[in-house]
């Protein structure tokens, strides 16, 4: 069964086309990476998936819910994390998680917070104000917020940005474990190619609002004759695409 189905999705601002008729599907339990340079349409696509932005045309279905008509039913079963959206700085970590526990109607919210704190190593931070934390700690708290409702679909924008390699690795490991244990579907936008190779079962390469290539990380590496996704990314960004990719859209 499909967790996410996107059909001919477009978004224009006047003459500017931010997303240009993209189609993709994500099976339940899979992790899809959205890759592309700045202005490729990743953030716009994620905003439309979250219901923050109304598409110019096209359809989005998440967990069977049409986002144009029934977005709140879908939003209750999904969540989102981005280091670019903050949590209230003056509230403690515990209070922030309580707020979102209430907003997502989480049962036994105190117990859920304790579970997340143990798993993401946040116990010592629970009673500290969110604004006093380091960037890496904030990212872990944002991740805890995104998992508060045990989401079936998780949208992550640069989830390990500003984390040191050790903590980044722990978070990636935790995301993998959460996905494998719960069957959660993850959509990940990242510029960290090693992270994408490790976490993603499928990758969409976006450029100027269009999908210019797609496949598993291994398929893309073979198709472009490269050893890592960073080189594939550069090939696409600098129009050095391998002949085999022509017409992939």
């Amino acid at each position: 069964m499909k967790a996410i189905t996107v059909t001919r999705l477009s978004k224009s601002y006047g003459e500017t086309i931010a997303v240009d008729g993209i189609d993709f599907e994500v099976e339940r339990g899979r992790t899809l990476g959205l890759l592309g340079g700045n202005g490729a349409g990743k953030t716009t696509t994620i905003a439309m998936l979250l219901g923050l932005l109304i598409p110019t045309s096209g359809q989005i279905r998440i967990l069977g819910h049409d986002m144009a008509r029934d977005r709140f039913a879908a939003l209750a079963r999904m969540n989102f994390s981005s280091p670019y959206v903050a949590l209230p700085h003056r509230l403690t970590v515990r209070e922030n998680l309580q707020v979102y526990g209430h907003l997502y109607n989480v049962r036994q919210v105190a117990r859920r917070i304790a579970e997340l704190a143990a798993e993401l190593d946040l116990e010592a931070l629970l009673d500290r104000a969110a604004g006093e934390l380091s960037a890496g700690q904030k990212t872990r708290v944002a991740l805890a917020k995104s998992l508060i409702n045990r989401p079936e679909v998780l949208l992550l924008d640069e989830p390990t940005a500003s984390l040191d390699p050790d903590t980044g690795d722990l978070v990636r490991g935790w995301l993998e474990r959460y996905r494998d244990e719960t069957g959660c579907t993850i959509l990940l936008a990242s510029h960290n190619m090693a992270e994408v190779e490790r976490l993603c079962s499928d990758v969409l390469m976006l450029k100027k609002g269009c999908i210019v290539d797609r496949g598993t990380p291994d398929e893309l590496l073979v198709r472009y004759g490269r050893d890592d996704l960073e080189q594939v990314f550069l090939d696409i960004a600098r129009d050095r695409a391998h002949p085999q990719t022509q017409g992939a859209k």
């Binding site: 219901g51 923050l52 709140f72 981005s82 670019y84 209230p88 907003l103």
Partner: peptide
């Protein structure tokens, strides 16, 4: 001011 609206509007809060 707390840049929190993004989280609020993607929650099930109507």
């Amino acid at each position: 001011w707390s840049r929190n609206l993004g989280h609020v509007f993607v929650s099930p809060l109507r």
